[in-house]
Simulated assay, not measured.
Amino acid sequence: MTLDPGSADIIQLAWARYLGLDDGAFAAARKLDADAVLEAGPLSAGARITRADESRKSVDFVRLFGTSALVGPQWALDAAERIPDEELAQHVTLLTLTRQHGGHGQGAAALFFADDLPLRQPAEELTVSHGNPEAIELEGLCPPDDVNEVGLSDLEHRFTILREDNGRKVPVACGAYTEWEGILAHMGVLVDPDWRRRGLGSLAASIAAHEALAAGLTLQWRADVSNKGALAIARSIGFSAGGIQTSVLLG
């Protein structure tokens, strides 16, 4: 689905606050981009927002709806000054820039957003739990890498689908969200490997997403660029691609 232009402004406001930028930083950069096109033509380089933070323990590059931002120590900003956005978005580029400062981890994640979604109706009656024990049990059934990426324990509102198995209700999929920067609903979905490829992840995500929309939040989905399953779920339920976040930890 297509995002309302106002929703893009809301999303960029949330990320500006997360990165420690002025609320209007992305809007100002868009204006600089437009002025550059008028003066130098459409092939001119776009404006990149930067913020030096010598105490920061990471270097973070974010590109949202065509506007980019880079936050980290001044030496990192200087090293990245002449590197195009397309290269900075690659995790290997940030690792190379920060190697002498212990750069490691985190990776690159695709960012998806939605301000409305079609309602998905289950083919049969479902039991959905809002409790923590079921979500914790589900985490124990999933690979640690999946558990760490989704981070259900950090997502306040959880909706776990239960199915009958040998006479007891067992958790098979959980869609969850938490309020992020007071504006967005940061989403996550976890599915028992034995129950994948049955549409349960998409259904759990849809349940959580509509609860978040009803709370007046704009939806955000963040997934590692190599996580094909999570990317497919986001697209299948109607999220729109909005950008990328690439980060490395320092020291």
Rank of each mutant, 00 (worst) to 15 (best):
A79V: 06
V92E: 15
I233F: 10
Q12D: 07
A215R: 15
S240N: 07
P42N: 11
I136Q: 14
T2L: 14
D145G: 11
I49Y: 02
Q74D: 13
A34L: 10
A176T: 02
T98R: 04
C174Y: 07
A212I: 14
A79C: 07
A204F: 03
V170E: 03
A205T: 09
K228A: 13
A212P: 12
V191G: 01
A205K: 05
W15E: 15
A80Y: 08
G24R: 09
T246H: 13
S202D: 07
W15A: 03
V248N: 03
L203Y: 05
E39Q: 13
T127G: 05
G66I: 04
K57A: 13
E139I: 00
L21G: 01
I207Q: 00
G102C: 08
I207Y: 09
K228N: 12
P42H: 14
G199P: 09
R222W: 05
A110G: 10
L117C: 05
I11Y: 04
A36N: 03
L152C: 03
D9H: 10
V62C: 03
R17C: 06
D22H: 07
L203T: 03
A204V: 00
D165Y: 11
W15P: 08
V191R: 00
A27H: 00
I233P: 08
I207G: 02
D35N: 14
A69D: 01
A34S: 11
E87K: 14
I49N: 07
R168S: 15
H104S: 13
